[in-house]
Design a protein around this nucleic acid. Sequence first.
DNA 1: ATAATTGCAAAAGCTTTGCATGGCC
DNA 2: GGCCATGCAAAGCTTTTGCAATTAT
Lengths: 142, 142
Amino acid sequence: MKADSISKILKDSALRITPQRIAVLEAILMLNNHPTADNIIQYIKNAYPNIAIGTVYKILDNFVSKGLVNKVKTDSDSMRYDAVTEKHHHLYCYESDRIEDYFNEELDQYLNNYFIKRKIYNFKIEDIKLQIIGKFSDNTNK
Amino acid sequence: MKADSISKILKDSALRITPQRIAVLEAILMLNNHPTADNIIQYIKNAYPNIAIGTVYKILDNFVSKGLVNKVKTDSDSMRYDAVTEKHHHLYCYESDRIEDYFNEELDQYLNNYFIKRKIYNFKIEDIKLQIIGKFSDNTNK
DNA sequence: ATAATTGCAAAAGCTTTGCATGGCC
DNA sequence: GGCCATGCAAAGCTTTTGCAATTAT
């Protein structure tokens, strides 16, 4: 992805355009396995040896609060980040650390309708995310 | 819950019965909002001022590996623990930190069947967990 | 008896914070 | 120019680790 299109994404989110922000966003988009902050920092360091860890965390928080990036919950210590903002679910592989996106509008529709008919007492649903746990049949890490 | 029944649970899981383990398991069962390790430690300290933090973490790991307790992923820093081992999902309230269990066998059946018909390429599903995000209508924290 | 568990304290992550410097608009 | 973002280093939290002492079986 070109720096131009990334700049545009930042501008559209009313974020000041800085080289660090471009680098972080590009890293998340390139590293497709839902990178940790550390993955991102390592990736950036090639082109950008002086970037500060704190800066990356601040940028990530920033992106999250603007809805540009989402946090992905995992069982392990560190938070992972996801630049795909369309509604989707996740496939978790318990063998590798791989997490893949899973899109299925048909199922989302079904679940929406299901919970309209079958309300949960005392709870107003805003979103439903599936954690689909299992194993990839190949062994690549993409 | 009586110490007797808790001892039985430990014995059934082939775990050595110690006062610390009884206290931890009792705490998880009593604190119903999916407690953090720290919640558990605070709870235990009343009756048991000298319990070591490291011990509680070791006990929790132990319980998790025996399947007595499950870890619950959240957006926040700390892991939470769940003593309910039957298949269930979670309601996450984004306002409070409340997490409630949600059981629905009918829906589980449907999802099982759905994914038998509609396989995910390259992925073998072992379990599906719903994260149902929203808001409780009351304001209690139970 | 012996093997596992505990307590303690230190250390190891990951993430946040404060503040002076520098850069974007 | 003014304000916001960055770099740096320190500190905060949660969790893990190692080891000697203690306890369960």
